[in-house]
Write a protein that binds this DNA or RNA. Structure first.
Lengths: 227, 227
DNA sequence: TCATTATTGATAGTATTACTATCTTTCTCA
DNA sequence: TGAGAAAGATAGTAATACTATCAATAATGA
């Protein structure tokens, strides 16, 4: 029996659901490849259309513009990652162990066990690191937020915040700490590889050191005695 | 006697030094206003030229493109902020107090005491929050880094890392903690105002709570007993 | 099986952006 | 006075980010 993970996306993210047609899936698959390879600013619908053998207009039938497509891809990733988090922590009772597992999932590329056919999660992870924050660092955040485009990210953050509170119900900043963990798992990775003097991992370029840093940061705060 | 703070910028940042002409200073001043008001993506050299009464070609004589102009503005800010940090901590001996001062400078809009004529630092602070990371989240980071365009940011980070080590010479992640403080001072501010559920400050929207969060985070780590 | 509808393909066209080039005027200062 | 630098004026190009239209084809269901 093959189990296929189906992720249901917010309908505001697209004009026509890309999961429901061959062309749609090709758009997603090759967008990920192209954004990964050349970066989001160099990515255009025209180039995408050419590589998948359709026309610009064809792509515009699925996505309003490339920013929406980026949000779609990023939202997909967060939804998928929250599934991974739930799946891999559901048999763990100790919230500290849970939190460590989450930090690991955030900071390293998750090896996918279920088949999600046309999406390459390890490329996606790299995209999220470099392009993820561009989804919300715009003038349209508020509007996009009203359309609930960032819900997967917010859900994951809330999930992590809950586990932080399980570790210590008196901790005062669970949500801010959660968003700090998420962002820093990525920024420290980007810095390590591109601006290494902003980190302590430039020599080894080892993602596991980022995990150590984040664990140190998180558990010293969460398990601190109240002064 | 009037003291004017002169900030000397890396020459790779511009084609012609904007500080040395009326037009150049107008370019900087109005770029800041326009980017602040409409965001970096909506900002174009053509619109800028129109508002300051010159032509597109006129602006291109100073800056290669709008991305370089953004890097210039951001680099200016970091240079200025490091001056503020140095100035306001130089009579403090306790590194913990120093670090608290730095967190405050990062998380709140600094009231400028010296006149830096044509630059509005409080607008700049807002720009850095929303647009700052776009300077390096590109495919050209490595190249731009070789041109030393990010030196002011890296210098500030190194400066903060040194103070962290003064607090605790055994702390293992001074540079990563420094970059975390800088980035989170801004991201938590952005989230607080735009995606409040990612923070614990959504209700009050008070920058001083960000300071509390960062102090808690930093000092629990830096002053932690080795386990 | 035929008609309806959805989907895609093909082509064209527009406004804006991101530049580059050139030539003239103005301003400075030696 | 006159050489050189800075700025203004104008033009033009390639690419981007779309929108519109119409024909061809595939899927569906009565």
């Amino acid at each position: 029996m093959e189990i296929e993970l189906q992720i249901k996306m917010n309908e505001k993210l697209f004009l026509k659901n890309p999961e429901q047609s061959e062309l749609g899936r090709k758009i997603i698959m090759h967008s990920i490849e192209m954004i990964h390879q050349h970066g989001f600013e160099a990515f255009t619908f025209k180039k995408l259309a050419e590589t998948i053998g359709t026309t610009e207009a064809g792509v515009y039938r699925y996505f309003e513009n490339k920013h929406r497509l980026l949000i779609y891809i990023v939202a997909w990733y967060w939804t998928w990652l929250e599934y991974q988090v739930t799946y891999r922590t559901n048999n763990i009772s100790d919230p500290v162990v849970k939190l460590k597992m989450i930090i690991q999932l955030l900071a390293t590329t998750v090896e996918d066990d279920l088949s999600t056919s046309y999406v390459d999660e390890s490329l996606l992870h790299q995209i999220i690191i470099t392009e993820g924050s561009k989804t919300y660092l715009t003038r349209r955040v508020t509007e996009d937020n009203k359309d609930r485009l960032f819900k997967p990210y917010k859900d994951l953050c809330a999930h992590i915040a809950d586990i932080i509170l399980e570790c210590n119900p008196a901790y005062a900043y669970p949500k801010s700490l959660a968003s700090t963990i998420i962002e820093m798992a990525h920024f420290q990775n980007f810095f390590m590889n591109n601006l290494p003097s902003l980190t302590d991992f430039g020599r080894d370029k080892d993602a596991y050191q980022i995990i150590n840093f984040l664990e140190d940061l998180v558990f010293n705060s969460v398990t601190a005695k109240v002064q």
